[in-house]
Measured scan of single mutants.
Amino acid sequence: DAEELIELVERALKEGREIILLGVRITSEEAGKWFIEWIRRFL
């Protein structure tokens, strides 16, 4: 579910982890915020 995915992304970014989803590397909080917004819009 989308909320679970958002929580995972937020937690990983807070822990300083690198996330790779759909071939996109997300390493900064700014990118994470963009990704979370995208999830909310399309899922």
Rank of each mutant, 00 (worst) to 15 (best):
L13Q: 02
K33G: 05
W34K: 12
E4Y: 15
W34D: 06
I39D: 00
L22M: 07
G23D: 05
I26E: 05
E30M: 12
W38P: 00
W38L: 06
F42I: 10
G16V: 11
A31P: 03
G16A: 12
I39E: 00
I26K: 04
I36L: 08
L21T: 01
F42W: 14
L5M: 08
E29H: 10
E30Q: 11
I6D: 03
S28T: 10
A31Q: 14
K33A: 11
R25M: 10
I20L: 05
E37Q: 10
K33D: 06
R17L: 13
V24N: 02
L8T: 04
E37V: 11
L13K: 02
V9T: 02
A2F: 15
R41G: 06
R40N: 03
I26Q: 04
T27C: 15
A2S: 06
S28Q: 03
R41M: 13
G32W: 14
R17M: 09
I26A: 05
W34H: 08
F42G: 02
V24M: 06
G32L: 15
G32V: 12
A31S: 09
F42T: 05
I19S: 00
L13N: 01
R11P: 02
G16S: 07
E15L: 08
R11I: 09
V24W: 11
E37H: 07
T27G: 10
K14Q: 08
K14N: 07
E30S: 10
W34N: 07
V9Y: 01
E7L: 13
K33R: 14
V9F: 06
F42R: 04
W34C: 11
E29P: 14
R17P: 05
I26H: 02
L13C: 15
L13M: 10
W38F: 09
R41L: 11
R17I: 12
E29D: 10
L13E: 02
L21N: 02
F35L: 10
I6V: 07
L21E: 02
R40W: 12
E7A: 14
R11K: 10
E15C: 15
R40V: 07
R40P: 00
E4V: 13
L21G: 00
E37F: 10
G23T: 09
I19W: 07
R40F: 12
V24S: 01
I19P: 00
E18K: 08
L21S: 03
I19T: 02
T27Y: 11
I20N: 02
E29Y: 13
E30R: 12
E3V: 11
V9M: 06
A12M: 08
E10A: 09
L8P: 00
E29R: 10
R17K: 08
G23H: 08
R41V: 10
E10H: 11
A31K: 09
L22C: 15
T27Q: 07
K33E: 06
W38C: 14
I6M: 05
K33M: 08
E10I: 15
D1F: 15
K14L: 11
I39W: 04
F42M: 11
I39C: 07
L5H: 01
K33T: 08
F42L: 11
E37Y: 13
E18P: 09
R41Y: 12
L8S: 02
T27P: 03
I20V: 10
I20D: 01
K14F: 05
S28F: 09
G23F: 13
T27M: 12
E10F: 10
L21K: 02
E37S: 08
I20H: 03
L22H: 03
S28N: 11
S28R: 06
I36R: 03
I6A: 05
E30A: 14
L8N: 01
E29S: 10
A12I: 10
A31L: 14
E15R: 06
F35I: 12
R40D: 01
K14T: 06
I19A: 03
E37D: 08
V9E: 01
L8A: 07
V24T: 04
I6H: 04
E18N: 10
I36D: 02
V9R: 01
K14M: 07
A31H: 10
T27H: 11
L5T: 02
I19R: 00
E15A: 10
S28I: 07
V24H: 06
E4T: 14
I39F: 07
I19D: 00
A2M: 13
R40E: 01
E10Q: 12
E10D: 06
R17E: 04
I6N: 03
E18T: 13
L8Q: 07
E4W: 15
L21A: 05
K33W: 10
R40H: 05
R25D: 04
E4I: 14
R41D: 02
I26N: 04
E18D: 06
R40S: 04
S28H: 05
E4C: 15
I36K: 04
I6Y: 05
E4K: 15
W34L: 10
K14A: 10
L21P: 00
L5R: 00
I26R: 05
K14D: 04
R25F: 11
F35H: 01
A12P: 01
E3C: 15
A31G: 10
A12N: 03
G23N: 04
S28K: 03
I36H: 03
A31N: 07
L8W: 10
F35K: 03
E7G: 13
R17A: 09
E18F: 12
E7C: 15
F35D: 00
I20K: 02
E7S: 12
F42N: 04
G16C: 15
V9W: 03
R17G: 05
W38A: 02
E3I: 12
R11Y: 03
I6S: 03
R41H: 09
F42A: 04
E30L: 13
E30Y: 11
E29K: 12
I39V: 09
L13S: 02
R11L: 07
I19V: 06
K14G: 07
I26D: 02
L21H: 01
T27F: 14
V9N: 01
I36A: 05
S28A: 07
A12R: 03
E3D: 12
F35W: 06
V24Y: 08
L13F: 06
R11N: 07
T27E: 06
I36N: 01
E15S: 11
E37P: 01
R41K: 11
